[in-house]
Simulated assay, not measured.
Amino acid sequence: MAQYTIIATAAMGLEAIVAQEVRDLGYECTVDNGRVTFKGDEKAIARANMWLRTADRIKIEIGRFKAFTFEELFEQTKKLPWENFITEDGEFPVSGKSVKSKLYSISDCQAIVKKAIVERLKVAYKRIAWFEENGPLFKIEISMLKDVATLTLDTSGVGLHKRGYRAEQGEAPLKETLAAALILISRWTPDRPLIDPFCGSGTIPIEAALIGQNIAPGFNREFVSEQWPWIPASVWEEVREEADQKANYDQPLNITGCDIDHRMIEIAKKNSLEAGLGDLITFKQMQVSDLTINEKYEQSGVLIGNPPYGERLGDKPEVEKMYRDMGRIFSQYETWSVYMLTSHEGFERFYGKPATKKRKLFNGFIRTDFYQYWGKRPKRKERD
């Protein structure tokens, strides 16, 4: 099998998490802003799509070169072996972005790259006329950064956060990739209880259950590269079979999602069923001030949540009261660790104590902090 330069794109702040996932799959990698790069064959492309919980997309780097003029961009693009990737009937739209580069017109960069690829394919496929483009989809991106052009091919299609289980969602749903990252940062393990007091449509509890039973996040969806003839169907079959074998469907879980809105609880239940998790997760309508933790689970659990931020001015007093309630209630459970994501800069003040650790993350375009309060080690039970 051929070797490719594979890029797992990542939201700002999640690169280290994605890199660890790539290493866990067995690939050495390098980390840059917004991307994790590694080498691999066709199976590596399929496995990365199937298994990476926190990456946005999996791309193949086709070429990388300096380009100060449109002529250089055209000629260098034309030199690349596009016929190794794009079929004669392939549809190949070109998207683009440009930052701090002489070639700043994105639409011109896209047009030049498209024209260069067409010229290359005309020679390769001995064609005179324009291509029909009614076959498999090959999404190409030209990225200009400080006069360096990077040409990539998207292997995922729909973003990797689209797991295929979200039948319905609320107003501001947490991306599945970010939800998975919050759980991985918490170092939660499936033998410990987990509660999300603000579960909304159920994303954090569902992602926790998938992690807990080691179910591949891409198991119930399709990828655009499954239609490409140069990645054999047998590769995808092998990767899906590996995912099925590695899943631990018998792993017992104690995961609870709570929300004040009964409609969101119903949506969360539907999404959990759609994810194939059945009744593994308990969903309850409850406000955070009513939260109590069963004594037998008091030993060492995890509270993970994405509470309201109070972005709208009128919501602030209510949200700040909620943060006070959280601090008062959660502090009763000293062996539990608390992880909360919010953009509210006064969170620690209202919660009542400084976080053990903070991590800057982006929820969409909103800059947030992930406040981490590590619980005390539970006392060892004395032997009779």
Rank of each mutant, 00 (worst) to 15 (best):
R240F: 13
I366P: 11
N294S: 15
K246H: 11
M264C: 09
T203H: 12
I142H: 04
V338M: 06
H344W: 09
G276Y: 01
I206K: 05
T368V: 15
F38E: 01
S98I: 07
E168I: 03
I183A: 10
E21T: 04
F219D: 04
I142W: 03
L182D: 09
G90Q: 03
L303H: 00
A46N: 08
P378K: 08
E132M: 01
S98H: 02
G310V: 07
Y4T: 05
E266G: 06
D325P: 02
E28W: 03
L280Q: 10
F138Y: 15
C258T: 01
A129L: 05
K321F: 13
G346I: 05
A124L: 04
C258R: 02
V118A: 10
R35G: 01
R240A: 12
V148I: 15
L280K: 14
D290M: 06
Y249H: 10
L73D: 10
F38G: 00
A275D: 03
I106W: 03
N254A: 08
E71D: 15
G159C: 11
P317E: 15
T69S: 15
P205E: 12
P232C: 07
T177A: 12
V36Y: 01
E171N: 12
W188A: 08
K146F: 04
E226R: 13
E42R: 00
P354N: 11
G34C: 07
Q169E: 12
C29F: 02
E382T: 05
R367E: 15
K78L: 11
K316R: 15
T177C: 08
F65K: 05
I260T: 07
G63N: 10
F38M: 03
A44Y: 01
S107I: 11
T69N: 12
F283E: 02
P252Y: 08
T292G: 03
G26D: 13
L103R: 04
G170V: 12
G218K: 05
P93I: 08
S331G: 02
E133H: 06
K43M: 04
Y165P: 03
M322K: 05
L291M: 13
Y165N: 05
P197Q: 02
A124Q: 07
R120Q: 13
Q287R: 14
D154M: 10
P197H: 01
N271C: 07
D279F: 03
D41P: 00
L52C: 07
D154N: 14
L341W: 05
E334P: 00
A46K: 00
L25H: 11
K376W: 09
E171S: 11
N220L: 12
I185S: 09
L121E: 02
P197W: 00
K376G: 05
C109K: 01
E171I: 10
S343K: 08
G276Q: 01
Y323S: 14
V99N: 11
N306Q: 13
M286F: 04
M12W: 14
R221D: 10
V224Y: 06
T30E: 14
V158L: 12
A11N: 08
G305D: 11
A10L: 04
D261E: 14
F74K: 10
G96H: 07
F347Y: 09
S234A: 14
F85D: 02
V158I: 10
K379Q: 04
L73E: 04
I106E: 11
I45A: 02
E141F: 11
Q372T: 02
D290G: 15
T37L: 09
I366C: 07
V302P: 00
A208H: 14
I267M: 08
M50D: 03
